[in-house]
Simulated scan of single mutants.
Amino acid sequence: MEVQVKIFTVNKRFPLTISRGTTAQTTNIWVIVSQDGIEGWGEASPFGVGNHSQSTDKIKDALQQVTPILQGFSPLQRQQVEAELIKLQVPSAVRAALDMAMHDWLGKRVGLPLWQLWGLERDRIVPTSVTIGINTPEGARTRARDWLKFTDIRVFKVKLGNPDGIDADRKMLLAVQEEAPNLQFFVDANGGWSLSDAVEMCNWLADLGIKYVEQPLPRGQETSLVELKQHTSLPIFVDESCFSNADIPLLANYVDGINIKLMKSGGLTEAMRMVHTAKAYGLQVMFGCYSDSSLANTAAAQLAPLADYLDLDSHLNLIDDPFVGASIHQGKVLPNDLPGLGVQHSASAT
């Protein structure tokens, strides 16, 4: 198979601030695999977690390294390709882009969308949350109003872990709840709390009826989740602490669920393994995203019928998404009936 790599930059409609910083623009990579006149598309987007960083340059360099090697494989040889990429220790975002491209190629080859090829049911897909980043209370209110005007949503995920402390977190969350009293709320601290703050906040959030808290403690402090779990009834999900299925057995006694992201996991193949591993341990699963376009989020949406929660909103916040795929309907990100991923060029793309 032939592999092409194309760089594209996307800009956020609303810059997103979390406990680790603010993002307004990212440069992502479009990967195209070709064989027998069929193209399969995939996307790699940069991300950073603690001291783990996968920059656009790092991803691009790794793709250039493996492209000559991949010419000896077919898109049908996903297992062999995955083993080769793991052996070469390429970044997980590279594996994700190539894995989704090979899946897309297969779906186009057989003429079926992936969700249907896997025997999944779109009517099982739950509404996605959309994100309110760290802000002042009034700024958060404005952001909530913008979202409500812009698209049909049912769930807000509110980013907490404000560097100004948990009092600032409380004020901001209450402001958003007042602005959208009929919506469901999730909270994501992105590892921005100490253990004592996490205990205090989780109990306060439980009293407010928040569904769950995501990544209350920093990556690397997983053992402290044991104590947190003993002091709160609020369900705890992990994101930055869980990259692949190998992490799940180590976390299963401390948490209630995991956030699966294609860039962390290394693609749809590993995401499917993570779903089954998590379910075997009695955990819930959600699918999330980084600064992904419609290409990667539509890929994740193919697996959405298996998720308890969804946070596939990054493409909804782009002003220049070069792709179009899954659509939003009654707050749900729904894959279409086109073969493979069902992703095409956006009419506004240049």
Score class of each variant (00 low, 15 high):
residue 129 S to M: 07
residue 128 T to G: 07
residue 238 V to D: 05
residue 165 G to H: 12
residue 75 P to S: 03
residue 42 G to H: 05
residue 249 P to Y: 15
residue 100 M to S: 15
residue 170 R to K: 15
residue 155 V to K: 00
residue 105 W to S: 04
residue 152 D to Q: 12
residue 252 A to Q: 08
residue 108 K to G: 10
residue 329 H to F: 12
residue 315 H to M: 13
residue 214 E to M: 04
residue 153 I to C: 01
residue 268 L to K: 08
residue 138 E to I: 04
residue 309 Y to F: 15
residue 100 M to H: 05
residue 170 R to I: 15
residue 150 F to C: 02
residue 156 F to Q: 00
residue 70 L to P: 03
residue 1 M to Q: 06
residue 344 Q to H: 11
residue 69 I to F: 11
residue 184 Q to D: 08
residue 81 V to H: 05
residue 139 G to M: 03
residue 50 G to C: 11
residue 177 Q to S: 05
residue 275 V to F: 11
residue 43 E to A: 12
residue 157 K to S: 00
residue 185 F to W: 06
residue 310 L to G: 04
residue 132 I to K: 01
residue 237 F to W: 15
residue 238 V to W: 13
residue 75 P to E: 04
residue 133 G to L: 05
residue 204 W to K: 05
residue 22 T to D: 02
residue 24 A to Q: 09
residue 271 A to F: 01
residue 126 V to Y: 03
residue 328 I to Y: 02
residue 131 T to M: 07
residue 172 M to I: 12
residue 218 P to V: 11
residue 81 V to A: 02
residue 160 L to W: 08
residue 200 E to F: 13
residue 154 R to C: 01
residue 208 L to Q: 15
residue 108 K to W: 01
residue 284 Q to I: 00
residue 272 M to F: 09
residue 24 A to T: 13
residue 120 L to I: 06
residue 82 E to H: 14
residue 217 L to W: 07
residue 187 V to K: 01
residue 342 G to W: 03
residue 51 N to Q: 14
residue 31 V to N: 04
residue 307 A to H: 11
residue 141 R to I: 06
residue 22 T to F: 04
residue 219 R to I: 07
residue 280 A to N: 08
residue 261 K to Y: 04
residue 252 A to T: 02
residue 340 G to N: 04
residue 332 K to L: 09
residue 109 R to E: 09
residue 194 S to R: 13
residue 112 L to A: 14
residue 44 A to G: 14
residue 161 G to V: 05
residue 250 L to N: 03
residue 116 Q to K: 15
residue 15 P to I: 06
residue 104 D to E: 10
residue 223 T to G: 00
residue 90 V to S: 01
residue 25 Q to V: 12
residue 314 S to G: 09
residue 10 V to G: 01
residue 171 K to W: 09
residue 149 K to E: 13
residue 169 D to S: 08
residue 120 L to W: 10
residue 146 D to A: 05
residue 19 S to K: 04
residue 104 D to R: 01
residue 211 K to I: 09
residue 177 Q to Y: 09
residue 25 Q to M: 10
residue 224 S to F: 12
residue 91 P to S: 13
